[in-house]
Design a protein around this nucleic acid. Structure first.
Length: 269
DNA sequence: AAGTGAAGCAACCGCGGCGTT
DNA sequence: CAACGCCGCGGTTGCTTCACT
């Protein structure tokens, strides 16, 4: 696999790496360690650019890098973190020793994203896909009757109210531009407090989502997110820290029902 | 057996952040 | 404080393999 080999005008080699090149890179780093990537290729006797060497090392050659299939547990971890961090693959990779950001990103784009979509979950927001046009809903044809009957009517019943609010939160969390600061900003948005009056709707969503997930095949059990791990991670990266300034207090579930109902990664069953 | 599309994987590209001058 | 250059990250592309018809 990989790309065909070719040479740039300046003689720099591009495309697939050979075993010989791998050996040279590993041998050099074993002796001298990782230094300036600009000069490393020349010193190691490689006709590659530094960027290419770095990529090869981090994704393939470095010690401890894990190849092969992702386990259901690893997939669960990816989904949980993605629901919080969005496409911040490097940060997610830090939580999964042995897996490179590239590996995780590839697995997400080629497999997990599509699997979530098949199950009627928006991979960007991690929320059930709410589509008022029932005829076009993908899960209407792909899933069991129970999930079909529960997902659309009750979801649409509060789509104009809390779901817009929820989508705002989820979109903010998962968008390309978002960051931990973005999460903080969204959660500190005064409009979020209006969620107090939406608990009934949230409860419905929780039930609907749970049923939908419960109806899925065994192989998709990873969709039951581990709330405890997610909470712990959020604490680690500081999302839960800012209650000290009075903006957000995660222990106050009555004030912010969002997290408690699993919208930030909690399990939904 | 051949054709075709989907899935999986490796690597490149371009941009933004950050450190240095 | 601006300019510059390097590094890291995320998005995308291209190739191979696999499964299905």
């Amino acid at each position: 696999m990989g790309r065909a080999t070719w040479f740039e005008a300046d003689g720099t080699k591009r495309g697939e790496w050979t075993e010989e090149e791998d050996r040279k890179l590993v041998a050099y780093i074993d002796v001298y360690g990782i230094g300036d990537w600009r000069f490393l290729p020349h010193k190691a006797g490689l006709q590659r650019c530094g960027k290419s060497c770095r990529l090869r090392w981090l994704n393939y050659l470095r010690p401890g890098v894990k190849k092969g299939k992702f386990t259901p547990h690893e997939e669960q971890v990816i989904i949980s973190f993605h629901s919080i961090l969005g496409n911040r693959w490097a940060t997610i990779a830090q939580q999964m020793p042995g897996r490179s950001d590239n590996d995780i990103k590839n697995h997400w784009n080629s497999c997990l994203k599509k699997r979530l979509e098949r199950n009627g979950i928006d991979p960007m927001t991690h929320q059930p896909i709410i589509n008022l046009d029932v005829k076009t809903q993908s899960f209407n044809t792909d899933c069991g009757s129970s999930s079909c009957s529960t997902a659309s009517p009750s979801s649409s019943s509060f789509s104009s109210g809390s779901s817009r609010l929820l989508n705002k939160i989820a979109t903010g969390i998962s968008s390309r531009q978002h960051s931990v600061d973005r999460i903080k900003n969204i959660l500190s948005d005064p409009t979020i407090t209006s969620i107090n009056g939406q608990e009934e709707g949230l409860e419905l969503l929780k039930i609907d989502h749970g049923k939908m997930l419960a109806s899925d095949d065994q192989e998709d059990d990873f969709l039951m997110w581990d709330e405890e791990k997610t909470r712990h991670f959020m604490e680690e990266i500081g999302v839960m820290d800012f209650h000290t300034n009075g903006v957000y207090n995660p222990s106050s579930s009555a004030q912010y029902g969002v997290y408690e109902t699993g919208l930030l990664g909690g399990h939904l069953n």
